[in-house]
């Protein structure tokens, strides 16, 4: 189907964006990469009156190292993240996850900011942001706000972004020398939204993980941290029995929402498998 009619504006600075958001309110949609928005418009699932194209705003671009943080502009594309040497060095989780995001033609246009703002619980970037304890940098006409990922994703497609606010960048703590991260997901077809996925990050010392964060995609209404499982493995040498305890803790603390072909029990089972495999891999790599 064809999209319903809407107007289109292409501001050249953030300063031009805020009055538009003020003027149109809910009737405006921000157009970042458009890879989700335009598909939903083509299905006539919503009828905004105006699209605000963010592509000409240079403030939303750029990959820079800012002290202890790697700052990735909201309009940086998935492909750019995938290919960036800077990202590979300072946030190696991201290039591990990037190939799982849809397909090349989508990754060439889809953006980090768009993905974070849409907050699909099955998407890779929100999960990675949460796993890396990243920060969403949001701006509005009244100023800038920094929101920890832990406080950002609140419900299905719902974030703590306020009306009139726009994501300008995400910041990721720069990986230390003993940084550990891993990513895996189970999708029936390459590039599909996964049934369940797991991003893990923390500090590694020999066979022990510290400050570990384990975040699942595809389970619930938001990316979900497995806090109890994190607590089990945190600062303890990894053993098979510790890993089993972590899996048990995971199943105790989280519950899943089923989809068309995988019910909640299947999703939780698969989440446990992913966790076990990720930790076993880590344990075995240290023992090797």
């Amino acid at each position: 189907m064809k999209a319903p009619a809407f107007d289109y504006v292409k501001p050249h600075s953030l300063a031009e964006v805020f009055p538009l958001l003020q003027q149109y309110g809910d009737e405006a949609r921000l157009l970042a990469g458009g890879q989700t928005l335009l598909a939903t418009l083509n299905m006539r699932l919503s009828e905004p009156s105006v699209l605000v194209d963010l592509s000409a705003i240079t403030e939303l671009r750029g990959l820079t190292l800012a002290g202890a943080m790697l700052r990735i502009g909201a309009m940086v594309t998935h492909s750019e993240i995938e290919a960036s040497a800077l990202v590979a060095q300072h946030a190696p989780l991201l290039p591990l996850a990037a190939p799982h995001i849809a397909h090349r033609a989508i990754r060439n246009l889809g953006t980090l900011g768009g993905s974070i703002a849409y907050a699909d619980p099955a998407a890779e970037w929100p999960t990675c942001l949460l796993a890396l304890d990243g920060v969403v940098v949001a701006k509005s006409a009244t100023g800038e706000r920094r929101i920890r990922a832990d406080d950002f994703f609140v419900d299905l497609y719902t974030t703590t972004l306020l009306p009139g606010e726009i994501i300008v960048a995400c910041e990721f703590p720069v990986a230390s020398a003993n940084h550990w991260c891993d990513f895996d997901e189970l999708a029936r077809r390459h590039g599909d939204y996964a049934i369940v996925g797991l991003a893990g990050a923390g500090q590694r010392s020999e066979n022990t993980l510290a400050q570990v964060r384990l975040v699942f995609l595809g389970l619930g209404a938001t990316p979900l941290r497995a806090l109890q499982a994190e607590g089990v493995v945190k600062s303890q040498p990894l053993t098979a029995s510790l890993i089993n305890q972590a899996v048990a803790a995971l199943k105790n603390e989280l519950s899943a929402v089923g989809d068309l072909t995988s019910d909640a029990a299947t999703k939780m089972h698969l989440a446990g498998v992913l966790l076990k495999r990720m930790l076993m891999k880590q344990m075995q790599s240290k023992n090797a």
Binding site: L31, N42, D53, L109
Partner: peptide, 16 residues
């Protein structure tokens, strides 16, 4: 191809 990179033609507006 849009500026040399592949894209989905149905997920890009002509105006973009």
């Amino acid at each position: 191809r849009l500026d040399g990179k592949i894209v989905r033609g149905c997920l890009v507006l002509a105006v973009q």
